[in-house]
Design a protein around this nucleic acid. Sequence first.
DNA 1: CACTATAAATAAGA
DNA 2: TCTTATTTATAGTG
Lengths: 229, 229
Amino acid sequence: MNLNTMIPGINTIQKKTSKGRKKIEIKTIEKESTRQVTFSKRRTGLFKKASELCVLTGCQLAVLVHSPGGRIFAFGHPSADVIVDRYVNGTVTNNACKSDESSSSSLSSSSSSSSNQKVMNEFNQHYVKVSKQLEIEKREREMIEESKDAKNRGVGWYDESIEEMKVDELELYLYSLVELKRKVLLRADDLMISRKTPNLLMGCSNLFDHVGGNDDDGMGPPPAGVFGT
Amino acid sequence: MNLNTMIPGINTIQKKTSKGRKKIEIKTIEKESTRQVTFSKRRTGLFKKASELCVLTGCQLAVLVHSPGGRIFAFGHPSADVIVDRYVNGTVTNNACKSDESSSSSLSSSSSSSSNQKVMNEFNQHYVKVSKQLEIEKREREMIEESKDAKNRGVGWYDESIEEMKVDELELYLYSLVELKRKVLLRADDLMISRKTPNLLMGCSNLFDHVGGNDDDGMGPPPAGVFGT
DNA sequence: CACTATAAATAAGA
DNA sequence: TCTTATTTATAGTG
């Protein structure tokens, strides 16, 4: 790449203006300005990577970033909303509470919240099918399976006084909870045999030559920067 | 970086076993197997980048990936759901369906945005702390659980106990989780103040058709799942 | 913001 | 999977 480094002794060919990239630890950057710059650069890089993944493999994805300043950046293919919507639905996160709320206060979302119910029903039906298959499979597993502390801390659990939990505990709790829930769902997904409709992807090429822009994370109004593929 | 290419003529120093990385076009990969491998690698890379961005800049983000096979992969800090919820709702997650708690925080959503900003920042910082705790905890569990992924660092894998669960358990489990999560979220809502964010969506214009009708369901590594930060 | 030297990610192979 | 050779991404600087 660089003769100056390849061949010692001739590094005086030209005065270099940079000491080059340095390795950094992955820990919170203290210096405000540096952190800001890094945020910009890396967010751009992340979006680019996401875009490439989309194009190369034909998958659909979304990236949502909340800057420390509260600004929201999003990238999605075919669109952030579509992906998010599917995630929310497919994740069964919807309980009475949620769907209730979405129909009333979600003025910003232009997505199909009306079809949510339908999708949910589909999912549930699917789930039943999946469950049956799981039942069959379980028998096989049973043999290999053994005393596995399946209910590692926190499973069995829940009725405790949530109201009294401290914030830390609560959030930690929620966190692991969400993770757990996902595992369950993924497990179910693994057994789904259904094939989804071939995805007709909408998208543009990679147009990230200018996503950077001004990433002022100070304060001010909360304009959301949303990128659609 | 390679003398063999830098200096013609001495490329016989040693026979290498690989031709190394080649430049590729960012265009849908035709070959099925290659596409899957790429999907795996790049998805992992994307998640890692996302994780680094979180840690380095203290931002919150989520990455949702829908493989062509319909599988969902997600990464989020503090959790995919939290980020998604905030993206979708834009406002306080949901005061609409409170149970027994007083609706003390619902009003704050209409307060001055600068005030909210401050609270949000505090909230974010708090989450960072919490997540770090969680990370430690995870690591511990990881070690106890298994250490087969010595090379797969930075990316936590899910625990397989779920795999072994029986259907009934699974179903009950999921049910409880959903219910519990609702409770936790309700409680959490009283502790967090979100800002309303405009949801501007830029749709994309060009369409590109998906090549190859085989949307095989085999994308990605085994039921990997949600990564927490 | 442009640039350079270096660190990382990753396309091909085995 | 694991390795290797390259291509990319970027930390530091001007």
